[in-house]
Write a protein that binds this DNA or RNA. Structure first.
Lengths: 245, 245
DNA sequence: CAATTTTTATTTGTCTGACATTTAAAAGTC
DNA sequence: GACTTTTAAATGTCAGACAAATAAAAATTG
């Protein structure tokens, strides 16, 4: 395994080295659980100092591409990117993307429900009894009177996540992670208008009922209603903000 | 702005510091384009050495959360995460996730088409003439006899990306990035059975025609056919591999 | 005085060398 | 043979230095 960096490039050495190793992983030259050379050896290979190598390795660690272990048999190992890791990265990225770019609420909402509706038919077909039970439990929690707005939102996310997971497709669950979870802070702006809870619970119940009877069309209809209702709420809030009675 | 790290924690100092700064960005304590304290100042604040601070900053840079600039007025600045950055991160993550986890082809295929079909109705409604022209051009390219398999695949991706972008929803385009682009290496396993090109081009043409007349149902029908066809091909390849005539 | 050039201060990028800590294997001991 | 101790290798952290880039400040010049 020899990796090279371009001596012409103007970029940081640590960035170049990280990219070289990243490429080796993506192309399969380095396989899962394989141990990278030690930091000193890498420093020799790339003709740079150990701190520079370390900065490169930290970049890769931040992307969960490698993991490091101390001790005699330690070192940096190519990490198997788990669905869980990918999932949480996706949520972080989506959250930042939405919060930093002042994304129009309607745009985010449209995307989220379009994707969720894509899961609905599969979920109606395959949802397990366990996932259905999770959804019922979350609906029950949402009906508790003392629930804070944050807890209601968290429960809302858990409900929709169960719906998505019901499709029984981990790739789909992963792809939807950002769409569902990153919406939470945006939804927070809205749900503080507390009277909406009954309506939302009713629609959640409709969804759960339809999933129980495996009626994909009814699930879709309820999701559409939920989307319409959510957007209506957002519009009301925006209006109220424009002319605060 | 004061940030703290837990002196009890066993994790790497650089990881803890990165997390502290990351939290400050996510929570809005640090806003876009704000300059972080210099590396020396951060080292003093966190009571660690400069190399440790630098490792933390490189972790954040790997996630495009900050950018650095040298010179008198330089430093580390909170970076506005662009759709483009998020898009390419998503593609990298999805590609690695699929290649490292031996994801079942059917699973990936199902997810990809489920998501793409979610875009279809919006795209039928809103696609611009420009996007339609892109799709026609890619179909034309795909019909060229001398085209390599790699180029055909790339054109295929470009075609589907135009379809997704037709929905006119940047959040949706971002979310779909992984689903569409990360499939390319998996598709490569299949398209080397060259005779399938005509069939694919016919279905692409059907999609473009339906989008031109804004007929969402026809788009959906063509996408379903494309999914069925793709999965059939994969099955054939798998079968041929089991008993190589 | 205005324009240009030079200097200077600040900040990141990189290097060297050292020590601390963790860990597993090797060596030693009973 | 089972247990303890030692050792070696690796990452984690530190201190201090110099290089390179960059913009502002100062000096120079027409």
């Amino acid at each position: 395994m020899t990796m090279k960096i371009d001596p012409q490039s103007s970029a940081d050495l640590s960035a170049q080295i990280a990219q070289a190793i990243r490429d080796a992983i993506i192309s399969g030259q380095l396989i899962v659980d394989e141990r990278l050379p030690s930091e000193s050896e890498l420093a020799d290979q790339f003709k740079v100092s150990r701190p520079t190598v370390r900065e490169a390795l930290k970049r890769l660690a931040a992307q969960s591409l490698i993991r490091t272990q101390r001790g005699a048999t330690g070192g940096a190992f190519v990490n198997r990117l788990s669905f869980e890791d990918a999932y949480s990265q996706q949520v972080t990225t989506s959250t930042l993307l939405l919060s930093m770019n002042a994304v129009n609420f309607d745009t985010a909402c449209e995307a989220r429900y379009a994707l969720e509706r894509a899961c609905a038919p599969l979920s109606a077909q395959r949802r397990t009894a366990d996932q259905l039970a999770t959804m019922r439990a979350e609906i029950f929690r949402q009906a508790q009177p003392g629930l804070t707005d944050e807890a209601f939102c968290a429960s809302d996310v858990a409900f929709h996540r169960a719906l998505v997971d019901g499709a029984g497709n981990p790739v789909l669950s992963y792809q939807l992670a950002g769409a569902v979870e990153a919406m939470q802070p945006l939804m927070n702006m809205i749900t503080f208008t507390a009277r909406s809870r009954e309506q939302i619970i009713a629609l959640h119940t409709a969804i759960a009922d339809a999933l129980e009877t495996q009626d994909a069309r009814k699930v879709d209809a309820a999701l559409v209603k939920l989307e319409v209702y959510t957007r209506q709420l957002a519009q009301d809030v925006a209006e109220k903000r424009r002319k605060p009675a």
